Computed example of a mutant assay.
Amino acid sequence: MPITRIAIGTPEEAKSPDCLKAVLAEFISMLIFVFAGEGSGMAFNKLTNDGATTPAGLVAASLAHAFALFVAVAVGANISGGHVNPAVTFGAFIGGNISLVRGILYWIAQLLGSVVACLLLKLSTGGLATPAFSLSTDVSVGSALVFEIVMTFGLVYTVYATAVDPKKGSLGVIAPIAIGFIVGANILAGGAFDGASMNPAVSFGPAVVSWTWAYQWVYWVGPLIGAAIAALIYDGIFIGQGTHEPLPAADY
């Protein structure tokens, strides 16, 4: 089982130049992603005078997040692995592909990147609200939790298949494209129900800046459960003990 390969890491790892560069890369990638994704939602609200979400608005949000995540993953891939998501980092940890020490530093960088992106958006738009994730009126907490689990499972499964699996070969730019596409598709599927976060940092930044914490736990628990399931299934079944090779930090 992949969980047997979990690594804690050492304090020295946290001080290494390689680790510090990777943490900075995660911060920058998350800032790029949230600024574009959250900014697209704020632009829609401005153009519609905070009107109701429309199919066109949902498609626009899907495309903005897909394109932004493709870029954010691609620019960080050779430095940090391009996680750009605490759930992806957690899934990598469960599979033994990142140590606990480095994973915690990634989480801090990702959360800070999201908060800074939202603060910059608020500043540059003259104080416009940064909308926090919320459930639609006809969606229960249980339904939203299932949405987040399933959507994040699909995301992290895609990450394992295109970026982590040692048998993936030379996929090059395919991994960032596939990761961006699955997020965009999931937003089309779940955006009208719970906002389709799949990323605790993406929901955390707007919540901090707008100080809106309703159901915030859903956007943490759901993605982390989905990520863990994806890691256990893909690593345990398709990679397996015999074929697993620890990934260099430069690769993931």
Rank of each mutant, 00 (worst) to 15 (best):
I6K: 12
P17H: 05
A22M: 02
L24H: 03
A25F: 01
L31M: 13
I32W: 15
F33W: 11
V34F: 11
V34H: 06
E38V: 15
M42I: 11
A43I: 08
T48V: 05
T48W: 06
A52P: 11
T54P: 09
L58Q: 11
S62R: 05
L63R: 14
H65R: 11
A66D: 02
V71E: 09
V73Y: 01
G76Q: 00
I79W: 01
P86T: 12
V88F: 04
A92P: 02
F93M: 06
I94S: 01
S99Y: 03
V101F: 04
L112C: 12
V116Q: 09
C118T: 10
S124C: 09
P131V: 10
P131K: 14
F133R: 05
D138K: 15
L145D: 03
V150D: 02
M151H: 08
F153A: 02
F153S: 02
K168C: 01
A178P: 12
F181A: 14
N186H: 10
A189H: 08
F193I: 02
G195S: 12
P200G: 07
F204G: 07
G205V: 02
P206F: 09
V208E: 05
S210Y: 10
W213T: 06
W213G: 06
Y215W: 01
A230G: 09
G242N: 15
G242F: 14
P246K: 06
A249E: 00
D251I: 00
